[in-house]
Design a protein around this nucleic acid. Structure first.
Length: 289
RNA sequence: GGCGUGAUAGCCAAGAGGUUAGGCAGCGGUCUGCAAAAUCGCUUAGAUCGGUUCGAUUCCGAUUCACGCCU
């Protein structure tokens, strides 16, 4: 195949959890003939649906990538694999004349793609020696970004207080739609409690509940706090990315500035507006109830 | 009405007449190989009024409130 010489244009939708990233990405994919690449370290695992917020029903006819590509019992997906899978997907979509739309909140993964992390091979940290595939790959598996990207990065913004409320509403909806049963089923299919706890948040706290280490109400409150703290850490990472010169267009409630217009201008090569709002220059209120 | 106990930060909760309680929650940061992970930092309160004292959140008195008991 011919190498791609020009920079490949991609759109990115990111932001903290529970802000409606998927819905926006699907909307843009429909309008701009796009395909979605999930940037989510948990949605890669089969069977982790409700807890990771896959929302597969929202996609309709829009093709998606990097979802359900790993076995939660046997695999431990990581940044290295994500980088090679994501660049492969971007190239594939682009060659077919479609627009790659990256969508997700795993900020490290996104940052690695946007900044073209060059992951060296060679000696790996002690803690990784247990993983067979890493040993096999060794030095030659060093990851070098195969081509450059021209990315329009948009983030869905809500005030922290609103995000917190959305997290709570979504959590209860997830309980109502069978999230506990999902975790139970994963365990019955061979995913150890240890592994489930490693996956974090919903999988960790519900595993503890299933092991009778806490009551439902205790579990729910702990989980609520953990998800909220996670959303804060996502913000902290987005600020770091901004300081590292990644421009993020924060869309108030996902609407303003209009993402369709931004993307249209970006794709046609028109001048984009100045970034009006930087998360890194914004402080959240000192406390919430 | 009488007696007793208590009143500490958003919440829980200690000790001490002068030197940081602590935990949770909150906020911020680090992070190029498990990132929904790991890890670090910050956040100075003592119900009210008066007294004792060089100095009171700590001792004394009154008041208010809460809880318990008694009549």
């Amino acid at each position: 195949m011919e190498p791609l010489t020009k920079k490949i244009k991609i759109a990115v939708i990111t932001g903290p959890t529970a802000t409606g990233k998927t819905a926006l990405a699907v909307e843009l994919a429909k309008e701009f003939s796009g395909e979605i690449i999930s940037v989510d370290s948990r949605q890669v695992y089969r069977g982790m649906d409700i807890g990771s917020g896959k929302d597969l029903a929202e996609y309709g006819d829009i093709p998606y990538h990097l979802i359900d590509i790993a076995d939660p019992a046997a695999d431990t997906y990581n940044l290295f694999e994500f980088c090679s899978d994501a660049f492969a997907a971007i190239e594939d979509i682009s060659r077919r004349g479609k627009l790659p739309i990256l969508c997700g909140g795993t900020a490290l993964y996104l940052n690695a793609i946007l900044q073209g992390y060059n992951l060296p091979g060679g000696k790996l940290p002690e803690r990784r020696t247990g993983e067979a595939r890493i040993r096999q790959e060794g030095t030659e598996a060093a990851f070098v970004p195969p081509f450059e990207l021209d990315a329009l990065v948009m983030g869905v913004y809500f005030p922290r207080k609103t995000v917190r409320a959305r997290i709570e509403a979504r959590l209860d909806a997830r309980f109502a739609s069978g999230m506990i049963e999902e975790v139970k089923a994963l365990h019955e299919k061979g995913v150890s409690y240890e592994k489930l706890e490693f996956f974090g948040l919903e999988y960790r706290e519900i595993s503890r509940y299933l092991q009778n280490l806490c009551s439902f109400e205790e579990m729910r409150l702990t989980l609520l706090n953990r998800i909220r703290q996670f959303a804060k850490r996502q913000d902290i990472f987005f600020r770091k990315m901004e300081r590292e010169n990644i421009n993020i267009y924060w869309l108030n409630e996902g609407k303003e500035p209009d993402p369709r217009k931004l993307l249209r201008d970006f794709l046609s090569g028109s001048a984009l507006p100045e970034i009006g709002f930087k998360l890194s220059e914004h402080h959240n209120a000192p406390s919430y109830k």
